[in-house]
Design a protein around this nucleic acid. Structure first.
Lengths: 336, 336
DNA sequence: CTGAAAGCGCTTACAG
DNA sequence: CTGAAAGCGCTTACAG
């Protein structure tokens, strides 16, 4: 345990500690020869500034809090890893907090972070946004919100994905393949924006999604997608492509297609949205629209760092564009 | 941003700050009436001690570093989440570092953690154990190592799983179902201990694993398991059960069984080891042996906290017992 | 360009 | 049981 302090360095270099401090902080007020001497002393002693003390003196801890509902969900795990990477690149360390979606726990965690005098924080929406936002503004820390959903509270910095464009891209892809008889599986409230985007893409080719071809899933899950797909596909065997508003639903659609003897993509094309890890491993691998967590991480970091440097809030919504990922579950309609 | 300090509280309560400090730290030297007055002032002002300042004064930051190779791997993600939970329960916050398996990066991260004066750290083995151990002892911080593999450097605190017992449990299960013609897929160097355990269990029923029935996989992956299983099962069609030394391999075995027209578990039983998330979602769901990350997290936390309190190292290996998880991929051999 | 002083917010002996 | 002092390791004006 090296307990070497700035005082030791000063002693060894034959100067006072504020001169050492000046050298460390690269203040251009130190004569080259003195600097050189101090630097040698630092190297010889293996000195490295105590961040706690510095934090207390400057009010800057170079530490940011990361608040996520859980890390067991791969989406958040990836996001946290990407955030760690981008924040690390800016010199910030990370204090990780998980809330399990519990507002009480979140409050406790935030209290502690505040007592640690972190510089700011990034939190991933876990559905309790409004609650957290109140709490956060109360704490007075700069923060940015990574919103996975479409609701975006105003007056704060939020980074989100353009869900409408996601729907647009998926539908555009199916449309460009030549599909005209397209069904939608999903129609869950949080996916409405995606559906609208899909409508827009199809409208460009004068294709209208018939209401009867929209299968409302009871929940965004594989079974949910399965049931909805079974019902839509048996009622509308003429459908050649299904757009699922989430990969989980799409996985269920794949299952339904197998049960109905519809080869994918030979007889039926299936596209999802999200690009979760499983999308890559389904049979066949799923064509989908990816939300790039890394970009979300970078944008969030950038926003926070800028706010930290400038010292003022920059409220507003940054909407990230998703990417189409074409895999093997989509093809032109049969007989084209 | 509440900037209320101990001084403000003292002022309001009409005492000096060290009396406030005494109240906060529950030192039994304060008269009830003074305490009451101080506590009211604290409540009224919403005072909460600055952990940075306290850390500087006491040398205790109540912060521990968590060093893992990645969080994108669900194993580590779960472990980190469980560690966060158990450490939080002990009052510790977490500084998260990912190394990506890069020793250089690990060194950098550890340097920073040291400068933050964290109290101790827990790190998950990423294969560079020995490297890290040197670095860590050099840093002089109390730490415990979560070793997922079997190699356990001595002289330090390490928590690991009993891999031999894992193999034993899997083999015992197959044995007790009545299987005698058992093949093994795996045989990778890191899985040797598991294989030994399996041998032990089978030996108790006088069953010997014929060397020709051991399929050596080129790597611990689904394709690796598939290839090894194809070769063993075609050469030894009499085999009624396969023990894979890892779930990934077992998933490959399942695939091979499907290709060979062997129904699982009707015609062939398959057991894995690890209980990764996918094991629950295969067809059929995989019988396996689970390594309880939560227990690993708890044991590690306990060890570290004890070391922190006692102020001295407690080197040694804590070997955690795994659990058999029976799902649908195993059954008695056909015709029994 | 360098040094003496005060302060960040807390705690820890140590007198009274 | 309470208060005055010194210190944790750093930084920030401010004289020289």
């Amino acid at each position: 345990m090296s307990v070497v302090t700035i005082k030791d360095v000063a002693l060894r270099a034959g100067v006072t500690k504020q001169t050492v401090s000046n050298v460390i902080n690269k203040r251009p007020v130190v004569s080259p020869v003195t600097r050189e001497r101090v630097e040698r002393a630092i190297a010889e002693l293996g000195y490295t500034p105590n961040l706690l003390a510095r934090g207390l003196a400057t009010g800057q801890t170079m530490m940011v809090g990361l608040v996520v509902p859980t890390i067991a969900d791969p989406f958040y795990a990836e996001l946290v890893e990407d955030l760690e990477r981008s924040l690390d690149a800016e010199g910030y360390s990370i204090a990780l907090c998980t809330t399990y979606g519990d507002p009480e726990r979140a409050r406790g965690q935030l209290e502690i972070l505040k007592r640690r005098y972190i510089d700011g924080l990034i939190l991933a929406d876990d559905g309790n946004v409004s609650h957290h936002v109140d709490l956060l503004t109360e704490l007075g820390l700069p923060f940015v919100l990574c919103a996975s959903e479409t609701e975006t509270p105003s007056g704060i910095s939020v980074v989100t994905f353009d869900h409408g464009h996601a729907g647009y891209l998926a539908a555009q892809h199916l449309r460009d393949l030549g599909h005209r008889d397209i069904a939608v599986v999903g129609d869950l409230p949080p996916h409405r924006v995606r559906l609208e985007g899909a409508r827009r893409a199809l409208a460009e080719a004068s294709i209208v999604i018939e209401p009867s071809r929209i299968g409302t899933a009871r929940e965004s899950s594989q079974p949910g997608g399965f049931e909805a797909a079974m019902s839509v596909l048996t009622e509308h065997p003429e459908v050649t492509a299904v757009l699922a508003t989430h990969d989980l639903l799409a996985l269920g659609v794949l299952q339904a297609a197998a049960d109905l003897g519809r080869a994918v993509p030979g007889s039926l094309s299936v596209a999802g949205i999200d690009d979760m890890a499983e999308a890559d491993q389904s049979h066949p691998p799923l064509t989908t629209v990816a939300f790039a967590k890394r970009r979300m991480a970078q944008a969030s970091t950038e926003l926070l760092v800028r706010a930290l440097r400038s010292g003022r809030r920059e409220p507003g919504v940054t909407s990230l564009s998703p990417d189409l990922v074409v895999r093997a579950s989509t093809a032109p309609p049969p007989g084209s």
